[in-house]
Simulated assay, not measured.
Amino acid sequence: MEQFWSEVLNFCKKTTTAIADTLIEEAGNVSPNAKDDGSLVTSADHWADQTIREAIASQFPTHGILTEETTHIFPDQDWCWIVDPIDGTTNFTRGVPIWAISLGLLYRGTPVFGFVYLPPLKQSFYGYWYGDSGLTGPTGAYCNGQPITTSEDTPSKSHLFNLCARSLKVLQKPFPCKIRMIGVASYNLLLVASGAAVGGVEATPKIWDIAAVWVIVQAAGGSFIFLENTAFFPLTIGENYGKKSIPSLVVNQSKFISLFKPLVECVL
């Protein structure tokens, strides 16, 4: 397995960096179109999606693929990649230099490896989380090759908690932390994994928003809570995940779930 995981990590690094320069040139210079759900998509999203799919098919021909811009049906294959070619398309189209490329690798329906690259920031996050899959290999979470862990601090008014644009109801009541809104679902939650924030909530993320970070957050010592379904994984073969929202809360330590969960359940 060690050779396999080395191949997976090197593939993610090579593939995301290969498309990063083109995407950086396009950022702020492409006209978006609105999808049915109101989110934006550009020609750059489609190009990156196709490029990543072709790379996976070449390197891992037996693996399945589910991406934001194409196939939403979970396939009948042990290994499946879930891809978000540009997470934070609104930031991307407006020239805000925070957006990401996200790749999650699932084994029998459950994420076991996650990789998220933010080209404008030159930050690569990745991690391994095997759960009860029976798999073995490297462990931990990393940013640019350096180990990361969640903060051990007790939340306070000097700590950060991240919201998404659809979770502003949280502010109807007093909140114990300072609020930030990043505009990129994966980075919102990765800031908890890296220790920069003590928590974050996403009201309507899709599977491609969370597949990679679900792994990285837990590998870094954090807790990932599904606000509607306590056990969202494993995914179901043949099911369409294109329109399934997965309200999610991430906290730095499990002991603070009881503090934050009642405050964010209003997003449901």
Score class of each variant (00 low, 15 high):
residue 140 G to R: 02
residue 102 S to N: 10
residue 49 D to A: 00
residue 115 F to T: 00
residue 109 G to A: 10
residue 108 R to D: 14
residue 29 N to K: 15
residue 107 Y to G: 02
residue 170 V to Q: 09
residue 56 I to S: 10
residue 36 D to F: 09
residue 209 D to V: 00
residue 176 P to T: 01
residue 67 T to Q: 06
residue 162 N to E: 14
residue 32 P to E: 13
residue 101 I to Q: 12
residue 58 S to D: 13
residue 104 G to T: 06
residue 202 E to C: 09
residue 173 K to D: 11
residue 239 E to G: 00
residue 68 E to L: 02
residue 96 V to K: 06
residue 128 Y to K: 02
residue 49 D to N: 05
residue 100 A to V: 06
residue 158 S to A: 11
residue 37 D to R: 02
residue 141 A to Y: 10
residue 83 V to A: 06
residue 235 L to C: 10
residue 92 F to R: 04
residue 22 T to R: 12
residue 8 V to P: 11
residue 61 P to H: 10
residue 93 T to H: 13
residue 238 G to R: 11
residue 265 E to F: 08
residue 52 I to Y: 10
residue 17 T to A: 07
residue 3 Q to L: 06
residue 196 A to T: 12
residue 113 F to L: 02
residue 243 K to S: 07
residue 198 V to K: 13
residue 73 I to C: 02
residue 251 V to W: 13
residue 63 H to M: 09
residue 81 W to N: 09
residue 185 A to Q: 07
residue 138 P to N: 05
residue 249 L to F: 12
residue 66 L to S: 06
residue 242 G to M: 03
residue 131 G to H: 14
residue 74 F to H: 15
residue 117 Y to T: 03
residue 62 T to L: 12
residue 221 G to T: 04
residue 59 Q to W: 11
residue 195 G to F: 15
residue 175 F to V: 00
residue 86 I to K: 07
residue 31 S to N: 06
residue 130 Y to R: 04
residue 59 Q to E: 12
residue 254 S to I: 04
residue 83 V to K: 00
residue 242 G to R: 01
residue 84 D to E: 10
residue 127 G to Q: 01
residue 210 I to C: 08
residue 2 E to R: 03
residue 107 Y to I: 02
residue 117 Y to I: 02
residue 69 E to M: 02
residue 202 E to Q: 13
residue 27 A to L: 09
residue 37 D to F: 13
residue 185 A to H: 09
residue 85 P to G: 02
residue 110 T to P: 15
residue 237 I to K: 14
residue 26 E to V: 00
residue 267 V to K: 06
residue 192 V to F: 11
residue 195 G to L: 10
residue 42 T to P: 05
residue 184 V to P: 11
residue 114 G to F: 12
residue 177 C to A: 11
residue 118 L to I: 11
residue 220 A to D: 07
residue 231 A to L: 05
residue 28 G to Q: 08
residue 236 T to P: 07
residue 220 A to P: 05
residue 217 V to E: 13
residue 182 I to R: 14
residue 68 E to N: 08
residue 28 G to W: 13
residue 67 T to F: 08
residue 165 A to F: 11
residue 12 C to F: 14
residue 139 T to P: 01
residue 26 E to G: 00
residue 130 Y to K: 00
residue 9 L to R: 06
residue 41 V to R: 01
residue 117 Y to Q: 05
residue 79 W to F: 15
residue 114 G to T: 00
residue 192 V to Q: 10
residue 89 T to L: 06
residue 262 P to F: 11
residue 38 G to T: 03
residue 116 V to Q: 09
residue 1 M to K: 09
residue 106 L to S: 03
residue 10 N to A: 05
residue 99 W to E: 01
residue 15 T to E: 15
residue 134 G to N: 01
residue 116 V to D: 14
residue 253 Q to W: 15
residue 78 D to I: 00
residue 1 M to R: 05
residue 143 C to L: 04
residue 2 E to P: 05
residue 192 V to L: 09
residue 160 L to W: 15
residue 37 D to N: 14
residue 268 L to V: 07
residue 182 I to H: 05
residue 127 G to S: 04
residue 131 G to S: 14
residue 168 L to S: 04
residue 160 L to D: 12
residue 33 N to D: 14
residue 239 E to W: 10
residue 245 S to A: 09
residue 225 I to S: 00
